[in-house]
Design a protein around this nucleic acid. Sequence first.
DNA 1: TTAATTTATTATCCTACATCAATTTTCACA
DNA 2: TGTGAAAATTGATGTAGGATAATAAATTAA
Lengths: 194, 194
Amino acid sequence: MSIKKTTLSILFKDLTFTDEEQDLIASKFELRKLKKGEILLHANDVVYHQYYVCNGCLRTYSVDKMGKEHTLQFAIKDWWISDYTAFFTSTQAIVSIECIQEATIYKVSRENMEVLFDKIPKLESFFRRKMEKSFANFQKRILGSLSMSAQERYNAFLNKYPDIEQSVKNYHIASYLGITTESLSRIRKKISKS
Amino acid sequence: MSIKKTTLSILFKDLTFTDEEQDLIASKFELRKLKKGEILLHANDVVYHQYYVCNGCLRTYSVDKMGKEHTLQFAIKDWWISDYTAFFTSTQAIVSIECIQEATIYKVSRENMEVLFDKIPKLESFFRRKMEKSFANFQKRILGSLSMSAQERYNAFLNKYPDIEQSVKNYHIASYLGITTESLSRIRKKISKS
DNA sequence: TTAATTTATTATCCTACATCAATTTTCACA
DNA sequence: TGTGAAAATTGATGTAGGATAATAAATTAA
């Protein structure tokens, strides 16, 4: 069994499991190590999996027609990541997933999720709540992009991902904020002087 | 029974129902007429309902600390609307819902949704799929806000909400796009000349 | 450790969109 | 049907953040 009880309690927080449930979950989760720069999912691939990040850092991003990258989100320790839009419907990914800091992850397929949901219904509510939070975050992000300046968005980013700065490049942050690295540089300078 | 079979088939598309199911649904849906300017939901209210738009036009928006309005989305004929972020958890709304063109809607409470899901499971999948689509739209909107110019976003808006222009004011559209009415005016002029 | 390369900063100039102010157009309703 | 208010347009000017280019700092490789 690759997953220990303590690990499970981190993954699923307040949920507790019987030994059988634990074994079943363990049999469906695959542990993987990722090197920096590795692409877990390419845009246009069909999405069969979602991933739990044990440590390290990943990001989802898309490339526009000008060749510019845009970061949709980062995932650090204890976050789940996938192209959920495509994952839900097993269709082609819009975004790619890249490892930007050496990471350990658990990989679960959509199929196996169904099996788990069927056998352990509380997992289904767990993931439903996750999705609801994710939905709420997207909503807030849209409102933020409509109402906040680049500097305010940067502060919101630091709040949302504390301690992430050492894991990601400035240009990743810039591509998340929708600005250039030069602008981010100026914002950081301005903040440091105040 | 306030809802007819034909109405239900519009509401739930490809789903079909027995007479009992139909009666049950009808008993949980409340028909309402809204006047232009009516506020269906105020930010900070607890959200107990979601709404189906038969005709007319509503929008969800929030007001930032500068007093500026930002439109999160519009809902026209055959759209569902609520502050889903708050609806999911019966918590306080972040956005308000305003009727911007005289409308007829169906109102359903979260509680009654649970009853319906329990008795008619296919409704639960129906709404799950709706949410997934909504999630996907939010994701696309974020990527759009990162990668597109105001003019491109305006075109994307026209695509997403065809025939909506006669229902909404320019300043509603502007507040959806994250620009001023003046800028929108210039964009429209530019487009009309090309 | 140095050299090579990647990343971040800074400076200059530029552009998309904002702000403010003045009209013009549209629309509600008396 | 005319009139006042709301909405949209236009113009002048300002500004946040973009583009380009040069330099500096930090990583990585050798």
